[in-house]
Design a protein around this nucleic acid. Structure first.
Length: 283
DNA sequence: GCCCAGGAGTGTG
DNA sequence: CACACTCATGGG
């Protein structure tokens, strides 16, 4: 199935390659492919349009892609709000095509529990291993991410052998504790409540709860603080401290769109580490 | 070989 | 509340 969409502004490479998603990969021809629900989707940027291709499926692919890319986000409004911060104002425009994505809640929860104390290539490998071993086959070599029922069949031993390390226990417990009704209750809760409930889950601390709030439940005010963000805040704002204090700093500074500011800072800091410049300061 | 990774859980001061 | 230690392993 072939389709065409307009999402503007959007930089597909930036959005899918900056480390917020773990199952999207680029091809030499410049297209990006991944899985949405039970469909294998391939996207390519052509000017201001997105050309897409998907395996036949029951879902409305175009709608899924628009939701995934958060096409309804008013980026100019978001940047107008963030511009109040002088550091953001300096380089924000060059991040204009970087959009926060909206992931499936369950997949996001599992993915970011796996993400603790691992680098991105490894996280991608672990998530892919879960899909291949417990997901549903939807195309040649492509598998959907396993829902709770399917993932429940995994034993801790199997999960450990797949390279999850100490995370295997967390995933096993998660399958016993979280079901669709529970996720649905989470969806309706305000951010602070959602966050508190997520933290009660095994393997979920403040940072993971904030990632799941942001990428899984679409709470744009969430500001996950990992090592890169700590460095960015120290380097660009001379701000150090506990998670609690840094979080308060971000809330005051970036308000309802702290999640976008976070992703800008995250991407920028990683580029800076690779000596690819910094858009938020003159160097 | 070495250092690091989108941290969390637990125990201690 | 703030720090210290452990956890299991692969990637660069």
């Amino acid at each position: 199935m072939i389709f065409e969409l307009e999402v503007f502004p959007l930089d597909l490479e930036l959005t899918l390659g900056c480390g917020q998603t773990f199952r999207w990969r680029s091809s030499p021809d410049g297209s990006w492919s991944g899985v949405l629900g039970d469909q294998f989707v391939s996207l390519r940027q052509i000017g201001q349009k997105i050309a897409g291709e998907a395996t036949p499926g029951s879902e409305d692919v175009e709608e899924s892609v628009l939701e995934f890319l958060r096409a309804h986000d008013d980026i100019s409004r978001i940047q107008r709000v963030l511009r109040r911060d002088p550091v953001m104002a300096l380089g924000m425009r060059r991040m204009i095509g970087l959009r926060i994505v909206k992931l499936d809640e369950w997949e996001c929860l599992i993915s970011y529990v796996l993400a603790t104390y691992a680098n991105i290539p490894r996280i991608m490998k672990m998530v892919e291993a879960l899909a291949v071993n417990y997901g549903r086959r939807i195309a040649h070599g492509t598998y959907s991410f396993p829902d709770r029922r399917r993932l429940s069949k995994a034993t801790v031993g199997e999960l450990t052998r797949l390279g999850l390390g100490y995370r295997a226990e967390y995933i096993k417990k998660m399958c016993d504790l979280v079901d669709e009704p529970k996720l649905s209750v989470f969806s309706g809760a305000p951010y602070e409540t959602l966050r508190r409930q997520l933290i009660e889950l095994p393997g979920v601390g403040e940072k993971v709860a904030d990632c799941v709030s942001l990428f899984g439940f679409g709470r744009l005010e969430s500001f996950p603080i990992d090592l890169w963000i700590e460095r960015a805040l120290a380097r660009l704002y001379e701000k150090k401290g506990t998670y609690r204090s840094l979080r308060a700093f971000a809330a005051e500074r970036f308000g309802e769109y702290a999640g976008y500011a976070q992703e800008y800072l995250y991407h920028n800091e990683r580029m800076h580490a690779r000596d690819l410049g910094c858009v938020f300061s003159e160097e």
